[in-house]
Amino acid sequence: MSNNPFPLPKEKLLEAYTKMKTIREFEERLHIEFAKGDIPGFVHLYAGEEASGTGIMMHLEDKDRIASTHRGHGHCIAKGVEVEGMMAEIYGKATGSCRGKGGSMHIADLSKGMMGANGILGAGAPLICGAGLAAKFRGDGGVGITFFGDGASNQGTVLESMNLAAIWNLPVIFVVENNGYAESTSIDYALAVDSYIDRAAGFGIPGVTVDGTDFFAVYEAAGEIIKRAREGGGPAFLECKMVRFFGHFEGDAQTYRAKGENEENRANKDCLKIFRSKVTKAGVISDADLNKIDDQVLARIEASVQKAKRDPLPTQKDLLTDVYVRY
């Protein structure tokens, strides 16, 4: 396979596919397991949006920080957080990545630069300005990426942070993952401007919109603005237009959607299918290679569920620890 038309070598393409597939299967499995009633609380699934998180995260190292959303599983996996710990966390187990104290909406791993999923919409934007500021003081070329949905894009925290990042010229990227719905409310209702590019321009920040179902579109756009930020060029705004395969949360009847919308999304806007089609057609990767990854991913998810179910629950002593470093 001598002619690779993609901006990534084959092993990186396989890595990206593995990440996306892992996210997909993680979420598909949670959809099933949640319905069985074994998972406490509520979960917000990222299925359908994998190309966005993965396309961006393929540019990042551990020193780069991301601030995620309530729909954070995909960001975690793409940033390198271990699936097994995440699954145990979602089951509320002591072996979870947050020892059962955070749950689906608060998975974090600062050693991987993952500053947390976040139950408060738009809350990650100020935090990532701080990450950008720290990188600037350290002078290590690190960047910060904050993700938010089209819903949270209207939060004052996001807008204030865009201004702050602009005046301080912070290495921060604002990524709106526009899946068309703020919970059940359409973006056509909630966004006053026609385009996020216009909104970013209002803060003196360059903006770009990409098809978020196309890994390569996201990868290329993100690469450019991340490079610019690393080199001191300041913040940028990236809109990934995408679809959400499931409801806002598990159990959402999604009656706000048009008839046939989900089926249409699954058929024609599936970022994994699109990726597979592109790389196999170009002859860079074979279906067999990808199928092998699929099997490995499914096995890993299966094992992580079985382990999570077996693992111990936290006990009373865990209730009172980890509130303070020292009190």
Binding site: C98, G102, S111, G116, D322, Y324
Partner: peptide, 8 residues
């Protein structure tokens, strides 16, 4: 600190 299981 608490939400992240002590890791922050």
């Amino acid at each position: 600190k608490y939400m992240f299981g002590g890791k922050a």
